[in-house]
Design a protein around this nucleic acid. Sequence first.
DNA 1: TACATACAC
DNA 2: AATGGTGTATGTA
Length: 424
Amino acid sequence: PTSAFTNAFTNAKAGMEGVDREMVKRVVHDMSVNSAHFATESRKEAAVEAKILAMKKRAASIRPSALATIKAAVDDRVARMEASRDLTKTWVHVDMDSFFASVHILERPELRDVPMAVGGMSMISTANYAARKFGVRSAMPGFIAKKLCPQLVFVDSDFAKYKHYASLTREVFKEYDPQFDAGSLDEAYLEISAYCAGKSMTPADVAEALRREVREKTKLTCSAGVAPTRRLAKVCSDANKPDGQMVIEPTRDAVAALLSSLPVRKIGGVGKVLDRTLAAFGIATCGDLLRERALVVALFSEVQSDFLLGVAIGVGGEARPARPPGWAPQRKSLSQERTFAPTADARALAAKIAALAEEVAAGLARENLLTRTVTLKMKRADFEVAQRQTSLPRPTNDAQTISDAALRLFRGEKNTHGSLRLLG
DNA sequence: TACATACAC
DNA sequence: AATGGTGTATGTA
C-alpha cells in the first residue's frame, strides 16, 4: 500500500496547481521505497496509526450519557470563548513569496524562468515557481526533485543575502507597526488598527500599500492576509500567493463562513499527525471541528482542546502578546547538529562531538549565556534518533566542560549506537 | 529531570 | 549515492 508519508510532497501548495499529483506521488514513492529512510518513516507511521486506534477505542467506549454531559460543558466553554471574541484588532500576516529563491533571482534574473531550487541533491529549502510546476517543493530531497524535473538547477543558500533583504522588509514593516513580530526571515505579523485609523485607510488599502512598498524597496513580492486574528491572517496570506492578498472582514459571520470549509491542515499548529488523527474521526475542516466539538473535548488534552475549539470558531491570537518595554526574546536552548556520511568510528565521532561542543560554547559566549544542561543527539544510519541529556553541577559556557559531558553521554551509549549519520 | 514527539520555517 | 538545521511546546514517566 502507498504509505501516507509519500503524500508529503503532494499537498496543495501555491504554484502547484495543475501538477499531476498522482505522478509526483509515484515518483516520490519509487525513489524512496528501498531506503532506510522509508523504513523508519513507515515505522513512525505505524506508531501514529496505533495511537489513533487507541483513541478510537476510547471514543467507542464513551457512553452517550457521558457525551451529552461533555456536550453541555463544551457549549459553555464555546460560549465563553465567543464572549471574549475581539473583532477590533486588524492583523496582517506578510509572507514573502518563495523568499530564498526570489532573492537569488534578483541577482540572476535568468533563473526566473528556469526551474530552480535552493539547496542540493540531498535537500532543497525553496523552489521557484517554474520548478513548482513539476511538483518540486521545499523539504523535498534534491535527488527526487531532479527526477521530477531533470532540468532543475540548484543554487547554494546564502543566508547573509537573505538577512540583508529581510532587514529591508523590516524597515517597511516598522512604518506600519513599530511593534511588528517577525517570526522568521520571510514573514511577519503586524497589527495595523492604529495605522488604519490614523491614515483613514481601509485594511485592504494598507495591505496593498505595504506590499507595494516592500516591492519598491526590495524588488521582491510578498503576499498578505488581513484578519481580526493572527491565526486567520496567516491563513489568508497563503490564499492568494504569489503577490496577492486576502481580507477577512471583522465580523463573526465572515469568520464563520471562511472556517466552515477550511481544511484544519491550513491552520498553523495543525501538522501531519494532528490532521490524520482528526481525519480518523471524520474531521477534515474547521466546520467539522465545530460540529464534533464534544468528541474533541472528550479525546484531547485541555491544552489541545482549547486550541482546537479556538480554531473551530476563529478565536485566539487577537491580543498582542504582552511585552514589557525593553523586552527581548529569551532563548531556551542553543544547539548545533550536523549530518555526515554514516560512520561507527568512535574516535571520529568523538572528534565531531568535541567540535560541536566548541561551536555551542562559542554561541553561548557570543550571547553571554551559560548552560546547565547538555543534550547529545544521535541519529543512527537507519534514521532512528535518540537523545541523552545530563545536568551539570553549575552553569557553564566552557567548551571542554560541555564536550566532556557530551562524551560521557556518548560513551554510555557505545554498545547501542552502531553507525551514526548525525550528531548534535 | 529525562526523553520523545510534533510543529514551524 | 543521496531525506536538513534550529528552536519551541507539550506529554509522559
